[in-house]
Design a protein around this nucleic acid. Structure first.
Length: 225
DNA sequence: ATCTGATCATTG
DNA sequence: CAATGATCAGAT
Protein backbone atom coordinates (compact mmCIF):
# COMPACT_ATOMS: atom_id res chain seq x y z
CA UNK A 1 0.00 0.00 0.00
CA UNK A 2 2.80 2.40 0.84
CA UNK A 3 4.77 1.88 -2.33
CA UNK A 4 2.33 0.05 -4.57
CA UNK A 5 0.41 2.11 -7.04
CA UNK A 6 -3.33 1.90 -6.71
CA UNK A 7 -4.80 0.22 -9.80
CA UNK A 8 -6.72 2.77 -11.83
CA UNK A 9 -9.06 0.41 -13.56
CA UNK A 10 -10.60 -2.98 -13.16
CA UNK A 11 -8.55 -4.20 -16.11
CA UNK A 12 -5.33 -3.08 -14.47
CA UNK A 13 -6.28 -4.75 -11.22
CA UNK A 14 -7.07 -8.02 -12.95
CA UNK A 15 -3.90 -7.86 -15.00
CA UNK A 16 -1.86 -7.29 -11.89
CA UNK A 17 -3.56 -10.17 -10.11
CA UNK A 18 -3.07 -12.50 -13.09
CA UNK A 19 0.61 -11.64 -13.08
CA UNK A 20 0.83 -13.20 -9.63
CA UNK A 21 -0.52 -16.57 -10.75
CA UNK A 22 2.16 -19.21 -10.45
CA UNK A 23 4.30 -17.21 -8.06
CA UNK A 24 4.98 -18.45 -4.56
CA UNK A 25 4.11 -16.38 -1.52
CA UNK A 26 7.81 -16.32 -0.74
CA UNK A 27 8.61 -14.65 -4.06
CA UNK A 28 5.88 -12.07 -3.55
CA UNK A 29 6.85 -11.39 0.05
CA UNK A 30 10.51 -10.90 -0.89
CA UNK A 31 9.48 -8.44 -3.55
CA UNK A 32 7.39 -6.55 -0.98
CA UNK A 33 10.11 -6.86 1.65
CA UNK A 34 7.71 -8.57 4.03
CA UNK A 35 8.86 -11.17 6.54
CA UNK A 36 7.40 -14.62 5.99
CA UNK A 37 5.93 -16.39 9.02
CA UNK A 38 6.74 -20.07 9.58
CA UNK A 39 3.05 -20.84 9.90
CA UNK A 40 -0.18 -18.89 10.14
CA UNK A 41 -0.99 -19.79 13.75
CA UNK A 42 -0.26 -16.28 14.90
CA UNK A 43 -0.92 -14.44 11.65
CA UNK A 44 -4.05 -15.91 10.19
CA UNK A 45 -4.66 -12.98 7.89
CA UNK A 46 -1.11 -12.79 6.57
CA UNK A 47 -1.83 -14.02 3.06
CA UNK A 48 -4.73 -11.63 2.65
CA UNK A 49 -2.69 -8.67 3.82
CA UNK A 50 0.22 -9.61 1.56
CA UNK A 51 -2.00 -9.72 -1.51
CA UNK A 52 -3.74 -6.51 -0.54
CA UNK A 53 -0.38 -4.82 -0.46
CA UNK A 54 0.97 -6.17 -3.71
CA UNK A 55 -2.28 -5.42 -5.52
CA UNK A 56 -2.51 -1.90 -4.15
CA UNK A 57 -5.61 -2.15 -1.97
CA UNK A 58 -6.27 1.13 -0.25
CA UNK A 59 -9.14 0.67 2.15
CA UNK A 60 -7.08 -0.50 5.09
CA UNK A 61 -9.33 -1.67 7.89
CA UNK A 62 -12.15 0.64 6.94
CA UNK A 63 -15.55 -1.01 6.33
CA UNK A 64 -15.50 -0.33 2.59
CA UNK A 65 -14.38 -2.37 -0.45
CA UNK A 66 -10.65 -2.95 -0.79
CA UNK A 67 -10.69 -0.98 -4.01
CA UNK A 68 -13.30 1.71 -3.30
CA UNK A 69 -13.05 3.48 -6.65
CA UNK A 70 -13.58 0.17 -8.45
CA UNK A 71 -16.15 -1.25 -6.05
CA UNK A 72 -14.09 -4.43 -5.87
CA UNK A 73 -13.56 -6.58 -2.79
CA UNK A 74 -10.45 -8.78 -2.60
CA UNK A 75 -10.75 -12.28 -1.15
CA UNK A 76 -8.01 -14.85 -0.95
CA UNK A 77 -9.24 -18.42 -0.76
CA UNK A 78 -7.14 -21.33 0.45
CA UNK A 79 -7.47 -24.39 -1.78
CA UNK A 80 -5.80 -27.75 -2.02
CA UNK A 81 -3.91 -28.85 -5.13
CA UNK A 82 -7.15 -29.97 -6.77
CA UNK A 83 -8.90 -26.67 -6.28
CA UNK A 84 -10.95 -27.67 -3.28
CA UNK A 85 -11.56 -24.89 -0.73
CA UNK A 86 -9.92 -25.66 2.61
CA UNK A 87 -11.90 -23.14 4.64
CA UNK A 88 -15.19 -21.31 4.66
CA UNK A 89 -14.91 -17.68 3.56
CA UNK A 90 -15.51 -14.94 6.08
CA UNK A 91 -17.51 -12.10 4.54
CA UNK A 92 -18.34 -9.57 7.23
CA UNK A 93 -19.56 -9.09 10.76
CA UNK A 94 -23.26 -9.73 11.24
CA UNK A 95 -25.20 -6.85 12.79
CA UNK A 96 -27.21 -8.06 15.79
CA UNK A 97 -28.91 -4.74 16.48
CA UNK A 98 -30.28 -1.88 14.40
CA UNK A 99 -32.03 -4.31 12.10
CA UNK A 100 -35.36 -2.52 12.00
CA UNK A 101 -35.99 -1.80 8.35
CA UNK A 102 -32.94 -3.74 7.23
CA UNK A 103 -33.19 -5.32 3.80
CA UNK A 104 -30.90 -7.46 1.70
CA UNK A 105 -30.60 -4.58 -0.73
CA UNK A 106 -29.20 -2.17 1.85
CA UNK A 107 -27.17 -4.76 3.74
CA UNK A 108 -23.44 -4.53 4.23
CA UNK A 109 -22.98 -8.09 3.05
CA UNK A 110 -24.81 -7.49 -0.23
CA UNK A 111 -22.54 -4.55 -0.92
CA UNK A 112 -19.43 -6.56 -0.04
CA UNK A 113 -20.31 -9.42 -2.34
CA UNK A 114 -21.43 -7.32 -5.31
CA UNK A 115 -18.02 -7.65 -6.97
CA UNK A 116 -15.23 -9.85 -5.65
CA UNK A 117 -11.76 -10.55 -6.96
CA UNK A 118 -11.06 -14.10 -5.81
CA UNK A 119 -7.42 -15.09 -5.53
CA UNK A 120 -6.97 -18.80 -4.85
CA UNK A 121 -3.82 -19.89 -3.07
CA UNK A 122 -2.75 -23.51 -2.87
CA UNK A 123 -2.50 -23.49 0.86
CA UNK A 124 -2.35 -27.03 2.25
CA UNK A 125 -0.92 -26.88 5.75
CA UNK A 126 1.90 -29.26 4.94
CA UNK A 127 3.24 -26.78 2.39
CA UNK A 128 5.55 -24.18 3.96
CA UNK A 129 3.98 -20.73 3.75
CA UNK A 130 6.78 -19.42 1.51
CA UNK A 131 6.22 -22.24 -0.99
CA UNK A 132 2.48 -21.85 -1.37
CA UNK A 133 1.51 -20.93 -4.93
CA UNK A 134 -0.97 -18.33 -6.10
CA UNK A 135 -3.57 -19.67 -8.49
CA UNK A 136 -5.58 -18.03 -11.26
CA UNK A 137 -7.58 -15.09 -9.95
CA UNK A 138 -11.07 -14.34 -11.17
CA UNK A 139 -13.57 -11.52 -10.85
CA UNK A 140 -17.04 -12.57 -9.77
CA UNK A 141 -20.40 -10.93 -9.27
CA UNK A 142 -23.38 -12.96 -8.06
CA UNK A 143 -25.65 -14.27 -10.80
CA UNK A 144 -29.36 -13.71 -10.39
CA UNK A 145 -29.66 -17.21 -8.97
CA UNK A 146 -26.74 -16.78 -6.61
CA UNK A 147 -28.01 -13.48 -5.33
CA UNK A 148 -31.41 -15.05 -4.76
CA UNK A 149 -29.80 -17.70 -2.57
CA UNK A 150 -27.74 -15.14 -0.68
CA UNK A 151 -30.78 -12.95 -0.10
CA UNK A 152 -32.79 -15.93 1.08
CA UNK A 153 -30.14 -17.02 3.56
CA UNK A 154 -29.58 -13.48 4.75
CA UNK A 155 -33.32 -13.10 5.36
CA UNK A 156 -33.56 -16.36 7.28
CA UNK A 157 -30.59 -15.57 9.50
CA UNK A 158 -31.62 -11.96 10.01
CA UNK A 159 -35.16 -12.99 10.91
CA UNK A 160 -33.80 -15.25 13.63
CA UNK A 161 -31.59 -12.46 14.97
CA UNK A 162 -34.51 -10.06 15.04
CA UNK A 163 -36.62 -12.65 16.85
CA UNK A 164 -33.97 -12.90 19.56
CA UNK A 165 -32.82 -16.33 18.50
CA UNK A 166 -29.23 -15.57 17.58
CA UNK A 167 -27.95 -18.10 20.09
CA UNK A 168 -30.00 -20.81 18.43
CA UNK A 169 -28.39 -20.22 15.05
CA UNK A 170 -25.95 -22.90 13.97
CA UNK A 171 -23.79 -23.52 10.94
CA UNK A 172 -26.49 -25.54 9.26
CA UNK A 173 -28.80 -22.61 8.83
CA UNK A 174 -28.61 -21.19 5.35
CA UNK A 175 -27.86 -22.94 2.10
CA UNK A 176 -24.70 -21.09 1.15
CA UNK A 177 -24.31 -18.53 3.94
CA UNK A 178 -23.78 -19.40 7.56
CA UNK A 179 -23.53 -17.45 10.80
CA UNK A 180 -20.62 -18.33 13.12
CA UNK A 181 -18.56 -16.71 15.88
CA UNK A 182 -16.25 -13.93 14.75
CA UNK A 183 -14.37 -12.65 17.75
CA UNK A 184 -11.05 -12.39 19.53
CA UNK A 185 -12.12 -15.30 21.73
CA UNK A 186 -15.17 -16.95 23.25
CA UNK A 187 -15.32 -14.35 26.02
CA UNK A 188 -15.90 -11.46 23.64
CA UNK A 189 -19.32 -9.88 23.88
CA UNK A 190 -21.55 -7.60 21.86
CA UNK A 191 -25.09 -6.38 22.35
CA UNK A 192 -28.08 -8.24 20.99
CA UNK A 193 -31.77 -8.55 21.88
CA UNK A 194 -33.51 -11.56 23.37
CA UNK A 195 -36.98 -12.94 22.63
CA UNK A 196 -38.55 -10.37 24.91
CA UNK A 197 -36.80 -7.49 23.26
CA UNK A 198 -34.44 -7.04 26.18
CA UNK A 199 -30.76 -6.35 25.46
CA UNK A 200 -28.16 -8.94 26.44
CA UNK A 201 -24.54 -9.59 25.64
CA UNK A 202 -23.54 -12.38 23.28
CA UNK A 203 -20.65 -13.58 21.17
CA UNK A 204 -20.11 -11.47 18.05
CA UNK A 205 -20.98 -13.35 14.85
CA UNK A 206 -19.98 -13.12 11.24
CA UNK A 207 -21.36 -14.23 7.88
CA UNK A 208 -19.36 -16.93 6.14
CA UNK A 209 -19.72 -18.52 2.70
CA UNK A 210 -19.85 -22.30 2.90
CA UNK A 211 -17.16 -24.23 1.07
CA UNK A 212 -19.69 -25.99 -1.17
CA UNK A 213 -20.56 -22.61 -2.61
CA UNK A 214 -17.03 -21.33 -3.14
CA UNK A 215 -16.21 -24.70 -4.64
CA UNK A 216 -18.87 -24.07 -7.28
CA UNK A 217 -17.39 -20.68 -8.09
CA UNK A 218 -13.94 -22.16 -8.53
CA UNK A 219 -15.24 -25.00 -10.67
CA UNK A 220 -17.20 -22.64 -12.86
CA UNK A 221 -14.35 -20.24 -13.48
CA UNK A 222 -11.79 -22.96 -14.02
CA UNK A 223 -14.06 -24.57 -16.56
CA UNK A 224 -14.78 -21.39 -18.50
CA UNK A 225 -11.24 -20.04 -18.48
C1' DA B 1 -15.25 -2.94 21.59
C1' DT B 2 -15.50 -3.42 16.47
C1' DC B 3 -13.83 -3.71 12.19
C1' DT B 4 -10.30 -5.51 8.79
C1' DG B 5 -7.57 -9.81 7.28
C1' DA B 6 -8.70 -14.95 8.03
C1' DT B 7 -7.18 -19.96 9.75
C1' DC B 8 -6.74 -22.94 13.71
C1' DA B 9 -8.14 -26.89 16.21
C1' DT B 10 -11.37 -29.63 18.55
C1' DT B 11 -15.37 -32.35 17.89
C1' DG B 12 -18.76 -35.49 16.03
C1' DC C 1 -12.16 -35.62 7.78
C1' DA C 2 -15.64 -32.15 7.36
C1' DA C 3 -17.92 -28.91 10.17
C1' DT C 4 -18.43 -25.74 13.84
C1' DG C 5 -16.74 -23.17 17.51
C1' DA C 6 -12.52 -20.70 18.93
C1' DT C 7 -8.88 -17.83 18.09
C1' DC C 8 -4.76 -14.40 16.41
C1' DA C 9 -2.89 -9.71 14.83
C1' DG C 10 -3.41 -4.87 13.71
C1' DA C 11 -5.98 -0.47 13.02
C1' DT C 12 -9.36 2.55 14.80
Amino acid sequence: MITTKIPESEAELIARAQALAGLTLGEIARQEKIKIPKNLNKEKGWIGLLLEQVLGASAGSKPIPDFPHLGVELKTIPIDRHGKPLETTFVCVAPLTGLVGATWQNSHIKNKLSKVLWVPVISERIIPVADRIVGTPFLWSPSVEEEQLLAQDWQELTDMIVLGEVENIHGKHGQILQLRPKAANSQAKTKAFNKNGKPFMTLPRGFYLKTAFTQQLINRFLRIN
